[in-house]
Design a protein around this nucleic acid. Structure first.
Lengths: 259, 259
DNA sequence: TCACTCGACTGGCTCAAGCCAGTAGTAGGC
DNA sequence: GCCTACTACTGGCTTGAGCCAGTCGAGTGA
């Protein structure tokens, strides 16, 4: 059968099915978490090939409306609680809680937050890191710490921190557990680095294959990529952290004076 | 032919081809802007079906590495100059240039920036806007202005500004051309609203169908969604702007004191 | 009661084929 | 010289078929 018979000028069948399903989701007829009919059912109901149904579902998955689970079905993506990270996350006012900002935020949303230290090593900084920390990119001038943050059973952020070796040397920053009630920044403060300013560079993109794997990202979910630099009272950058966060479960918030 | 014969344990053919092409792109063998072999060629060269090649290319397109152009070919996405918007975009220090921050940034990158006013209307604010501006969501309490910003021939940002009607009433804000050398914020300042703080709420997501169309977004490009609130010296929010920006050509930068 | 197996589902991947629609160069006609 | 028509490409969409791999519940055996 040629398309021309009855489809002239109309959008392709896969788009029509996608639009129909999208409407059912947005109207609430298919509630968050609900299971869509199976691909084979949809194909038969609409008189189209299963591959065409798959194309339609791919469109919905790409825009993040549904998630396919192998062997189980395709589900409307449940509205997710969002972890918000603000620029006040480094503010002294939260010191008293003894919680890191991420864990605090998880607690607010009723999620169980935890983190995992993946790696602590002395290494050579990549060029963009070296430039921002004003270090040589050619020798082992930094300590690199790599963490993953979890909320309930989802990995949310992959976090890499670089510290000038001159700052980290001889401190507990070299250990997995830094053992300070106020964390990394507590130690840095004792070493004379009080955070006066932050510089956050924010971008968004699709994840790399590796990030998709590490963060267990469903297809159609971008990541927020934040490069954070801490600057002390004398204007020196002394710490740099890169946050790669799944964008469907994360947001950022900047509350700042106009200078 | 069954897959088991020689593919046992290996990644699927589409992923293998995608990985091969990705490697050729990342090594520079396929430079930015270069044309990939046609789908039919790749299929023949690798002894796989054209549909499988299409699946591989889809994987690359989703992660933003290549762009397919109907009738022309598939091309390695050229590295794009990025427009950065900083939190200092509202700073008085840029007033003297007479350029809006977007146009200033375009000029820096050697791009021709311009904007277009799509709509100016008095309307009822959506609930999230009403809440942030502390207005009633049930009457026509706001002026809504809608703009598109272009760099060269690409639409980069879709910008919607909401102003309380009490603030906008009787000003040139109701006109398409506001006719003030310092733009909207120049007028607001004359009306007694000096920007003391900003509150930016940042998220990233895949575009809606409409946004994909409006911003002419290639597949695999997410958007940055920024909800900006201006707060005056007495702590009152008096202006709210939503920026929807294509993430492959945009970035954000926040430089702020720790309070 | 428990553990295991099996079968009937689910989506995931691939194939080979065909037609459609957009692009760009070329040969003809004026 | 210019425009038009043609043609040989390109990717886009659809079909219908088959096998693979994950899931989950029902039935079976110890």
């Amino acid at each position: 059968m040629t398309e021309t018979d009855r489809d002239a000028g109309r959008p392709p069948a896969s788009e029509r099915l996608a639009a129909e399903l999208r409407a059912r989701i947005e109207s609430g007829a298919l509630a968050p978490g609900a299971k869509l009919p199976s691909e084979r059912e949809l194909a038969e109901q609409h008189g189209i090939a299963r591959n065409t149904v798959r194309q339609a579902i791919r469109l919905l998955a790409e825009s993040g409306l549904v998630v396919a689970e192998h062997g189980r079905g395709v589900f409307v993506r449940p509205a997710a609680a969002v972890i918000r990270l603000g620029n006040d996350r480094y503010s002294p006012k939260y010191r008293s809680t003894g919680l890191s900002p991420f864990l605090l935020e998880c607690a607010k949303r009723g999620k169980a937050g935890r983190f995992e230290v993946l790696l602590v090593e002395r290494t050579t900084p990549p060029p963009d890191v070296a430039r921002r920390l004003r270090l040589s990119p050619t020798n082992k001038s930094v300590l690199r710490r790599e963490n993953v943050f979890w909320a309930d059973d989802d990995p949310i952020q992959r976090v890499t921190t670089w510290l000038p070796w001159s700052v980290a040397q001889g401190t507990t920053l070299l250990r997995d557990e830094v053992g300070h009630p106020f964390g990394i920044h507590g130690i840095l403060e004792e070493r004379g680095h009080t955070m006066a300013r932050i510089l956050d560079e924010v971008s968004a993109r699709m994840p790399t294959t590796e990030e998709r794997h590490n963060l267990r990202l469903p297809p159609g979910v971008p990541v927020l990529d934040v490069l954070h630099t801490s600057i002390d009272t004398s204007g020196e950058p002394y710490e740099l952290t890169r946050f790669v966060m799944r964008a469907d479960l994360s947001a950022l918030r900047y509350d700042a004076p106009v200078e």
